[in-house]
Amino acid sequence: MNPVNYLYLAALLFAIGATGVLIRRNAIVVFMCIELMLNACNLAFVAFSRLHGNLDGQIIAFFTMVVAAAEVVVGLAIIVSLFRSRHSASVDDASLMKL
């Protein structure tokens, strides 16, 4: 099996995700782009798993999904509470990470 096409697709998805994270302002969209990047990695993992004929990559893909799910829960909660307090979901409105 030739994984090259899968990898091209994964790279493309990752690039779209990364660009989205960097240029979009809406926190929800940024969030979706992060998911896109994660899934691009998952695709690459599964592709390699298939190539090498073992299950390691698929297991890691599952891990990634679990982590991503947890991240969604926490991240959405943060976004919602931010939106409540500031009536905006723009990432540029908040520089709270700076003390």
Binding site: L22, V91, D92, A94, S95, M97, K98
Partner: peptide, 14 residues
């Protein structure tokens, strides 16, 4: 460099 904007951190990460 630490301006607190998530996107600038993302840029430095990438």
């Amino acid at each position: 460099l630490q301006n607190g904007y998530a996107r600038s951190y993302a840029v430095s990460m990438f």
